[in-house]
Design a protein around this nucleic acid. Structure first.
Lengths: 101, 101
DNA sequence: TGACAGTATCAGTCCATGCTGATGTCAGTC
DNA sequence: GACTGACATCAGCATGGACTGATACTGTCA
């Protein structure tokens, strides 16, 4: 079905800082300290954003002693990309019927 | 580059009603009256959401007499899908280096 | 030209969300 | 056990956005 995309995941990616975090995690597995250095954001702020990303299923945590490493879950992004690609394909495929008013 | 995705487009898709509109427009070119019937939303509300989608480049309008037909722009969705697919691929590809704390 | 239908815009309200400082918790170190 | 650093949680504040009623604009038809 076309509506398989979850708006929670989309909303999680709709924030500039969160998108920045996701693109950083696409390259490396990082912990909050690294993300603070890379983004310049406060620890509290990052923690909030990381919770949103975690609850949306976009990242997963890996505790390592005092540190918490964050890893990107490619499946979530792939599902989203697939959903959007399906919508685009449906929009291209049909002979674009136009319902009369 | 990985950060090629625009958060404005993502935010535009992050609303349930707007995502519904997009999925409806993926099948048919519709005007506001049809969308009111399909979604049950008020005209004012729909007009606002359609403006957001138009400003994000996700839909385009086609005036037709008194009516305004809305058509989905597949390119925008394809670009988004491609950006997310690239991020997912980058997350899968690397040997996942872990920066020391 | 007047009436009406389709659509856009505006101002106002309400709620969700992003940011912050303060504080709590847990693990490692002295 | 006291201390420090990494991280999470909480309450408060400010902003943005979703929704609404009222209104304006435009095209069609009688």
């Amino acid at each position: 079905m076309l509506m398989s995309v979850d708006t929670d995941v989309i909303r999680a990616l709709g924030d500039p800082l969160r998108l920045r975090i996701v693109s950083l995690l696409a390259r490396e597995t990082l912990c909050t300290t690294h993300l603070m250095a890379e983004t310049g954001a406060r620890q509290t702020n990052l923690s909030n954003h990381l919770r949103v990303l975690r609850e949306a299923g976009l990242v997963e945590t890996e505790p390592c002693g005092r540190f918490t490493y964050y890893r990107l879950r490619p499946e979530a992004l792939e599902a989203l990309a697939g959903g959007f690609a399906d919508l685009a394909a449906a929009a291209r495929a049909g002979d674009r019927p136009r319902r009369a008013c």
